[in-house]
Amino acid sequence: MSTFALIFPLSQIEDGTAFPVSQWPLHATIVPPFETPAGPTAIANTLRPIAKTIEPFAISGHHREQFGERRDISVTTLLPVDRLQTLHRLLSDAVTTLGAAPLEPQYHHHGFAAHITDNETDSFSIGEHHQIDQLTLVDMRTEQPGANPRALLTLDLGQETRHPAK
């Protein structure tokens, strides 16, 4: 089983790039980590036609919250809630067809809250706006010492896609 997540990056993330979690460029996680027997190619083949149907759209910072069991993860929740909730369900359901299961089911479907997590140097502000135009598949396998989440494939929304990282 492999572990992946789907994100909407706020800046260009080159396929194949890895970052420590605390240093990941700002992004909105649209499908939190899930396990699946499917590999990146099968996931890409499932997501590619869906990404082509999603037109780029604007998000904005709604309010600041503390997430996590200890309420120690600073985030900015996002608008439009309905649009992000719909895209979360659409993309979650798509990877479910590949045998995907969420690592933390409480944060999927009804428990999903669209947000951007602060990193070590940056945060997304209340009222800040950004155009979402890409979807990135992230390999979340970090069990190896020194391993970090890695961007595998970026799909342009409403358009053709780039090639996956090797």
Rank of each mutant, 00 (worst) to 15 (best):
A44Y: 08
Q85I: 07
R150E: 05
F57T: 13
F112I: 05
T53P: 02
G111N: 12
D82R: 14
P33T: 01
P102T: 03
P25C: 06
D15T: 11
L155R: 00
E14V: 15
P145T: 13
R83S: 07
H109T: 02
S125Q: 10
G146C: 03
E35K: 05
F57G: 08
S125L: 13
T117C: 10
A38D: 09
G146M: 06
Q85D: 02
I13S: 07
K52F: 05
H110S: 12
N148I: 02
A165W: 09
I7N: 06
P20V: 06
G146T: 02
R83H: 11
P20F: 03
P105Q: 08
G111W: 05
P56A: 04
P37A: 10
E120R: 14
Y107N: 08
M140L: 11
L90E: 07
A114P: 10
L10I: 10
E14Q: 14
N148E: 09
P102N: 02
L26C: 06
F4C: 10
T41M: 07
T29I: 08
S22T: 10
R89Y: 06
P164T: 01
L10R: 09
P145W: 07
F124C: 11
T154P: 05
T97I: 01
A94W: 12
H129S: 14
P49T: 00
P49H: 04
R83Q: 13
A44G: 13
I54P: 05
T46F: 03
L157T: 04
D133P: 00
P49E: 01
Q66F: 09
T96W: 03
Q23F: 09
R83W: 04
H109L: 03
S92P: 07
D15N: 15
T46G: 02
Q134L: 07
P80M: 15
G39L: 13
I132T: 04
A100L: 05
P80G: 15
F19I: 00
P20G: 14
A100W: 03
F67Y: 12
H110K: 15
F34Q: 01
